[in-house]
């Protein structure tokens, strides 16, 4: 078995042993969204107007809760050291960890988002735009997040710091994603926004592996 396949298998098995850690960010996501109608009033028009932003803000916040899990346990137990000593590219192994984190934390989020679209009175075109932005945007969140997690994993008090480091970096994503959904609400084409998010994703995909590898190396120091 190649070391890459072995890692993916291990990641998936262990992720599903900690079901509560997977479910809690999802519940948090739903809870945050539930707060908004209660806070700003249940008028369908207002909900539809703020809906895209609410869903994306909630997605980013809930992602921060589960983000630490990406490298934390393996760093603390010393598995990252053993990975660094296997006959494989460390960058590749770390990218696989990011992939498996994305699969278990964000894919469920994309799957339950239609439900939330109903809660916030989103129309069908808006819903498709939301799915598109989540599908392209969440890998970006994982990749950029992995850099910051790699840097803070050796610190005991990384949680709030992680938010401070990451939230400013997610602003462009938030802007383009909500703008795409708003365009969809007005029956306008939202291709350009999706294209920009895709471009951001591709750029991040090209550059982040080096940054993630370097960040983990700094922490393993």
């Amino acid at each position: 078995m190649s070391p890459y396949a072995a890692l993916l298998k291990r990641e998936m098995t262990l992720a599903f042993r900690q079901k509560s850690e997977l479910i809690q960010p999802l519940v948090f996501f739903v809870l945050v969204i539930t707060l908004f109608p209660l806070g700003v009033g249940p008028s369908p028009d207002i909900l539809q107007r703020i809906g895209p932003g609410v869903i994306w803000v909630a997605a980013i916040l809930s992602s921060l809760l589960g983000m630490e899990r990406l490298f934390r346990d393996d760093f603390q137990h010393g598995w990252l050291e053993q990975l660094a000593l296997s006959d494989a590219s460390m960058t590749g192994l770390l990218m696989l960890k990011v992939l498996s984190h994305w699969l278990v934390s964000f894919v469920p989020l994309v799957i339950i988002s239609p439900l939330l679209a109903l809660l916030l009175n989103l129309t069908e075109p808006m819903y498709w735009a939301l799915m598109a932005t989540l599908a392209l945007g969440t890998p970006l969140v994982s990749l950029v997040g992995a850099i910051a997690v790699g840097l803070t994993v050796g610190l005991n008090r990384g949680g709030v710091l992680l938010a401070l480091l990451l939230i400013p970096l997610f602003i462009p994503l938030l802007i383009f994603a909500t703008s795409a959904i708003e365009s969809a609400a007005m029956q306008l084409p939202y291709g350009p926004q999706i294209a920009i998010i895709a471009a951001l994703l591709l750029t991040t995909l090209a550059l982040s592996p080096f940054a993630i590898n370097y960040a983990v190396k700094v922490s393993l120091h």
């Binding site: 850099i147 910051a148 840097l151 400013p168 970096l169 383009f176 550059l207 700094v218």
Partner: peptide, 20 residues
């Protein structure tokens, strides 16, 4: 080293943030 990574990641992001 760690803060350096964030500084470099930030400087890549500044123009993107600005234009967005």
């Amino acid at each position: 080293k760690a803060a350096g990574v964030m500084a470099v990641v930030g400087v890549v992001n500044v123009p993107i943030i600005h234009y967005s």
